[in-house]
Design a protein around this nucleic acid. Structure first.
Lengths: 339, 339
DNA sequence: CTGAAAGCGCTTACAG
DNA sequence: CTGAAAGCGCTTACAG
């Protein structure tokens, strides 16, 4: 398996042929006499030679690299979609360069620059709070970019998303259908167009469509993490009267809220119903199991990759506009009709 | 910031200097007249030129790439340690090529080959069920490899781990100290030296040291995942008498077991105590919160990266043998003294 | 079928 | 301080 510093010339000399010939057997070309091919192959195996992808990339003008910006690797939603993306990427002989930004926009900008220097063939971004610097940068970039699960404003690239507005609307309607009127909302960041703003407006619209007054005290915004859901729920438990149902725009926040309720000796769903958003694996890990508005995570990851590949190869099938996937309400045990 | 296909020659021509000079300002060398430097820099900015990392890698013989093999991106333990690793890697101007193998050893072998072709400077492996092909491959490889959280047999590389045997011993002893004697064990794969075998033997030793008989019915092996913990617990609930405490060698399996107990209308910890292993974020997400033998995940990730970097640069501080980190028992709410 | 030579986009002695 | 030229490890016309 051997020495990495071996080069094609070493193989050629040892086999007594030209580097051209070695290159040809390396690339499985025909027009090499079987006898020679066998001899060269033997030397390659003996030496443990493997060709330098770096050198190949340079001459082929193709790196087989895809860069991805992940907001938070430890989140159940992102780790799951990353897993689906990695799978699709590797099935297509591409490799994934991963950058976890954790709210650090400087790091994001730095990595986008690195991706450019690395000559990645495509970039996947799962984050929508783009600052001006980054927005400008990607808009001028001539590498295909695709957004997955988010859809920021003012940029020229395609997103693979669900209709977050409708999904939030449907979620809220579900709670209303169960007879709830005091429905709290644990939201994201309003600067996030899809996961912040659209879900919030979907919630509002469902309330007003049903003639339910919007109560400011029942509306809080956080950062999608468990801790944040916990804290916001704690604040809302102090409201008089307290809400009978809670819609959290991420499963992580929903679980945080659920734990908070539990820690205050109240019961889900008897005292308060809770519904999450994402349909991550967390929903089935907790008790009661969490009802959730499910994003088709696996499909979303896969679609992201295949669309990006189409974009890279400039295929006619390459998407020209946002791809909207179906959301599904998955009912488990965390919601109950208001008696 | 422009066209990726730009090359240094384009900048040189536009600025009316040689490529050498452009290269020099790119690399921040002195010995370029300020005036020239400014002019060249302006052209670089105007054009949005950024140098090809590929070409640089080839001449510098340095890729700044680290490859990592992750068993399962969706596991709470691995996603957390990956996050720590990514952080340390990027702080040191390296980039992470991620491969998620999901029990697919063919994919692992394929990726190790890709890592070699990519000329990554170092490889991190978080998986210990190496088959012969892979063991041979890495042993002949002249790229530094480091194992993180695992320590497979028959290979020449260093591991960053805890003392899993002692940790499992201590965990079991804790349950014994609470008065339990019917202590079930939900284990991993015995072919996994650290997480399978060592933890199992630590459990056995604690029992025998305390004169507690080993009951075969209380011992099961799974794959570290929640689902597996659930199924194994279900089997064991059928035992007569059933265990009063359970030690699961991953938090994921512990949560699975906990859910199973819950779904059978039994209570944790009143009816059965449960303790997990890893100290992942899951422990605080569930109710009751899960007591767990904690691995210092963040430290482990960081130590892995810095040790690997020392190895890469062949520093005197580079580790020559396994690095054993401290484990800590973290007591939460899932265990109770046997009355 | 085989090989010599040019070229991918950079950096780095070397010379001036 | 500046530039021409060689070289990093490959592939690919081109010629034979």
């Amino acid at each position: 398996m051997g020495y990495v510093k071996l080069k094609i010339k070493d193989v050629a000399e040892k086999a007594g042929v030209s580097v051209t010939t070695v290159s040809r057997v390396l690339n499985g070309e025909k027009y090499v006499k079987d006898e020679l091919k066998a001899k060269v192959q033997r030397v390659i195996d003996d030496l443990g030679y493997s060709p330098s992808h770096i050198a190949r990339s340079l001459v082929r003008q193709k790196t087989n690299l895809i860069g991805i910006i992940v907001p938070d690797l430890t989140s159940s939603f992102y780790s799951t979609i990353l897993s689906s993306i990695e799978e699709a990427v590797s099935l297509n002989q591409y490799n994934l360069l991963v950058c976890n930004i954790n709210e650090d926009t400087d790091k994001e900008y730095k990595y986008l620059n690195i991706f450019k220097e690395m000559r990645v063939e495509g970039i996947i971004i799962m984050h929508e709070k783009l600052n001006d610097e980054i927005r400008q940068f990607i808009n001028k970039l001539d590498i295909p970019v695709i957004f997955s699960s988010v859809c920021p404003e003012d940029q020229k690239f395609v997103s693979v998303i669900i209709d977050d507005y409708s999904a939030a609307y449907d979620t809220t309607n579900y709670l209303i259908g169960l007879g709830h009127e005091r429905i709290a909302f644990i939201g994201g960041d309003l600067r996030d167009v899809t996961s912040g703003k659209n879900r919030y407006f979907g919630y509002l619209k469902a309330l007003t469509d049903n003639g339910i007054p919007v109560v400011e005290d029942y509306i809080r915004f956080g950062n999608y993490k468990t801790q944040s859901g916990y804290m916001l729920m704690k604040e809302m438990l102090a409201s008089e009267p307290r809400p009978t149902a809670v819609f959290a725009v991420s499963d992580d926040m929903a679980v945080g809220a659920m734990n908070c309720i539990h820690d205050h000796k109240l019961n889900v769903p008897d005292d308060i119903s809770i519904i999450g958003f994402d349909g991550s694996q967390l929903t089935e890990l907790v008790r009661p199991q969490l009802s959730s508005m499910e994003q088709p995570i696996h499909e979303m990851g896969k679609t992201t990759v295949y669309s990006l590949l189409d974009l890279i190869m400039d295929k006619p099938s390459a998407p020209k506009e946002d791809i909207i996937l179906q959301h599904h309400l998955v009912i488990r045990d965390s919601c109950k009709a208001r008696s």
